[in-house]
Design a protein around this nucleic acid. Structure first.
Lengths: 345, 345
DNA sequence: GTTATTTTCCGAAACGTTTTGGAGCGGGTA
DNA sequence: TACCCGCTCCAAAACGTTTCGGAAAATAAC
């Protein structure tokens, strides 16, 4: 192994200048085919790979992107929920970045919101990354404000207050929830309750309005409860909904983990999920398929959405500036056992 | 914002040399308290953070560590399995690295094994990272061979063929499975089957021998089946075990996801998991608690294990060399509803 | 044979930091 | 006076790369 190969060592071996070796490998036309070949083979032989730190320094860019996630220990939701969603995103983002752009993805965790901003600052000021992915947008969202102020490129998963000023992708939550609600109506359900996400997430408003649209169109009263992203919360909320005088026959849930809690509440009351009470989740987390009965869920392709996010990021990285853009993905209902026709009355 | 603050710009503002500014901020004693204070406040005012690329270049270290994971698309196991385990590890590793050592964690995904090695090479040769975390050790493990050959520090989660030459942490799978088996025996079970992990994972041998130890000590015959890390595989394997003439009354599973499949098989045959047939999993994945009945599982603290891994890595980073070390964690049985006394006969 | 043009190569600067090896100065000691 | 010492400060080199602006050599044009 001895010492790591550098441009200098290769140049010395070949009796060439550092410049020529560098330009040969970079494919510039001002080096003769013969020398280029000589350089190429020498570089291959010693397994030369440019020192990334040096390259970053001179280029003024890092070829690294950060994904900063909430560290769910003392937060108002448990890891079980969060993880599958984040994991799917992470996996596809990292893979696409590496393969397409040779860019590293740095994953970091932050406790609370001010801690979150500190981390963003450290990354930006220390020139550790060129850009960010911002998951689970909220309203207001200080992360987005900071990045906009400082001209740092980023792509959000979810819309924000300043959607027209930056790049984002999102699911068409309004149409998706409207369609899911219509499907429940079709199946004869009339007392449909929505277990919505916390209102600080941008998407929760959209999900609620999709549901409300369809209910109103059918001339039926809405029934919206709010719970956070924990199974326990879904359980409690469902329990109180189901114990009301006019029991809902269908529960539409803001996300799958809430639906898991809801199913538990249904069983607790001696009812059968998918028969006595239908349950529909959202985000189609992997666990949905592990349940019995397995869970109907609104879904979209994490792979497609990640590909678009990487694409949007690439444009911004090339131009070294924020470029607004957006893309909406369909939210499609996957029907599974937890969804059935209305049987009551 | 204008242009980013650098040592040079601060030095110019203050009429000092770059050296002095650098040394003042680094806390060297050869700068007077007065100037140090002047420099500190100036740096704070402009929000100076050292350029990480420059720092990396001169230090010859990157302050970055890589975690390379398998990208489970065409592999013989599904995301559901892998994710929760990896996620727990990732979360705690990243957090500890950042907080304690100010080191970035780069997450990358590789398709197959040769692709995996390419990624390791690119990271090492390109000076992109100083060290690696190596999860889910196998036997043989080309990743470990490569890192050992090249003198790159790393910490394994799991033992390897060369355990005495590097740092690793692991759960005491042998004792854990032996104890779990003893507990099942205590509860009156005699026909206990093991649904073991694929043999390429180092830990699968240990788990099997723990089980075998306890069964042999009780003078009972062993019944070991092998399945891979997918629910479907657990389902199929359990189904065939349960349909044999002498049906097992307890299934000990190599990991939780397999146990989920096993529970499904049990229900399929009209039996009740936790009553007719007990099920015990391992790794205590978050989903275990979401199931009904919830799943008894062998567990350990991901947080503790991550802390030790980071600790071991730190020693190696400081010394810039591979330092063998190891730590075994207890594998403790969490009893939940899926585990009950033997009722048959 | 001279001049213009292309081809091929290279020296030097730059990116921003850390570190090495002093320099200058004032005060104390012999 | 001469010497040493401690306290502050700084110029310059180094890390490995890319790129700018030529220079030398080979080729073409007259």
């Amino acid at each position: 192994m001895s010492t790591k190969p550098t441009l200098k060592s290769i140049a010395a071996d070949l009796g060439l200048s550092i410049t020529t070796v560098s330009r040969a490998l970079a494919g510039y036309p001002d080096v003769s085919p013969k020398t280029r070949e000589r350089v190429r083979s020498a570089a291959d032989r010693v397994g030369y790979v440019p020192n990334e730190s040096a390259r970053r320094l001179v280029a003024g860019r890092t070829n690294a992107v950060a994904l900063v996630l909430p560290y769910p220990s003392d937060e108002a939701y448990d890891p079980y929920v969060n993880d599958p969603f984040i994991n799917e995103l992470l996996r596809h983002l990292s893979h696409a970045l590496q393969r397409l752009l040779q860019i590293d993805l740095i994953v970091s965790y932050a406790h609370r919101h001010d801690d979150m901003l500190n981390i963003y600052q450290r990354f930006v000021r220390g020139h550790r990354v060129d850009a960010f992915f911002v998951p689970r947008t909220q309203v207001p969202d200080p992360r987005v404000d900071y990045l906009l102020e400082n001209g740092v490129p980023f792509v959000c998963h979810g819309r924000t207050e300043h959607s027209d000023e930056h790049a984002w992708v999102d699911t068409d939550a309004r149409s998706g929830f409207a369609a899911a609600t219509r499907r429940l109506l079709e199946l004869g359900h009339e007392r449909i309750a929505l277990l919505n996400l916390p209102t600080e997430y941008f998407t929760s408003t959209l999900r609620a309005s999709g549901y409300t649209d369809s209910m109103s169109a059918a001339g039926l009263p809405v029934n919206v409860a709010s719970c956070d992203l924990r199974m326990e919360s879904g359980y409690q909320t469902a329990l109180s909904l189901l114990q009301s005088p006019v029991r809902p026959t269908a529960l539409l849930c803001g996300t799958d983990i809430v639906a898991v809690g809801a199913m538990r509440a249904i069983r607790e009351l001696g009812l059968a999920p998918g028969k006595d009470v239908s349950v529909v989740g959202a985000d189609n987390l992997p666990l949905s398929r592990l349940l019995e009965p397995d869970l109907a869920s609104l879904t979209y392709s994490y792979e497609d959405i990640s590909a678009v996010m990487v694409d949007m990021l690439e444009h911004q990285l090339v131009e070294r500036t924020i470029i607004p853009d957006h893309h909406l993905f369909d939210f499609q209902l996957i029907e599974r056992e937890s969804l059935g026709p209305c049987v009551s009355h």
